[in-house]
């Protein structure tokens, strides 16, 4: 059931990507509305797929990299759609939809988890930890997209060549507002995610912080985003410098999310979860 929904959602994301692409090329509002509708349907299907999987597993499906990437894709698309409700940035969907497709495709090619989740996975703290961290990842991915958009706009305005594409691009201040909100919300969720993670670690492993590679990289990521927020609020780094920093921070975030788990052994790595959990019934 959840697999069927999963593939259906992916199909809708792909469809939305194509329609949004048509929008970017033709600049017709009709394509934008259609793309947005398809993306919304895809996201609702995706939400249903995750909900069904949750019920089937009895735990939030985030034990493997496959499931995490799937959640990541859901968070990116959801963040973009929800932020789009408040900020009329039409091209945002055109950027978020393909990113969602890539994350979801990556999830689809990975092998599914073989073992059933252990009871520790059903902890409320872990669910909170995973949900907030995933929400943060989605929002910060949108921040990165916003930063790219900001750089593009800034470059076009400075190049003083205002082509037809430029006419439909949002204004700088709107993109700035998007980055501001996404960053603020993303950073808050990330902070909550780290606290709930620490509480969960204390409950399950007996210590709040174990200097595990994932924890260290998470801390680095968190500090980077704290610096990004600080420079934005205090020193006014909203322009190109802020955008580059946002992109760099997201790069580190991606490494923390995917790279650390694959390259560095530790209890946080996706394969190790079941064994750690298994050791502590």
């Amino acid at each position: 059931m959840s697999t069927a929904l999963h593939w259906l959602a992916l199909a809708f994301y792909l469809g939305a990507t194509v329609v949004y692409l048509a929008f970017v090329i033709s600049q017709r509002r009709g394509f934008f509305r259609m793309g947005r509708l398809i993306l919304w349907i895809g996201w609702v299907l995706h939400t249903a797929a995750i909900a069904v999987a949750w019920v089937e597993l009895g735990a939030l499906p985030a034990a493997s990299l496959r499931q995490s990437l799937d959640l990541f894709s859901w968070a990116i698309v959801g963040s973009a759609l929800l932020l789009n409700l408040r900020l009329a940035i039409m091209v945002l969907g055109a950027l978020a939809a393909p990113l969602g497709v890539v994350a979801m495709l990556a999830a689809s090619v990975l092998p599914p988890a073989v073992q059933a989740p252990t009871p520790v996975f059903k902890s409320l703290w872990l669910t909170l930890h995973v949900a907030t961290v995933m929400g943060a990842y989605g929002l910060l991915a949108v921040t990165c997209l916003g930063a790219l958009l900001y750089l593009l706009l800034d470059w076009r305005i400075r190049a003083k060549k205002l082509g037809p594409l430029f006419k439909r691009l949002p204004s700088l201040s709107l993109v700035d507002a998007l980055n501001h909100r996404a960053l603020l919300a993303g950073f808050t969720l990330m902070t909550v995610g780290m606290i709930t993670g620490a509480v969960y670690a204390q409950l399950v492993l007996g210590s709040y912080w174990r200097w595990d590679p994932k924890e260290v990289w998470s801390l680095i990521t968190w500090l980077l985003y704290a610096a990004l927020l600080h420079t934005r609020l205090v020193s006014g780094w909203r322009g190109r410098r802020g955008a580059w920093l946002a992109i760099a921070a997201f790069g580190v975030l991606l490494f923390t999310f995917i790279g650390v788990g694959l390259l560095m052994p530790g209890y946080h790595s996706f394969d190790a979860f079941t064994t750690v959990g298994g050791g502590q019934p």
């Binding site: 305005i157 205002l162 430029f166 691009l169 949002p170 204004s171 700088l172 201040s173």
Partner: peptide, 9 residues
């Protein structure tokens, strides 16, 4: 027009 590209409203 340009000002609106920068400041929106």
């Amino acid at each position: 027009d340009l000002a609106r590209k920068i400041f929106d409203d």
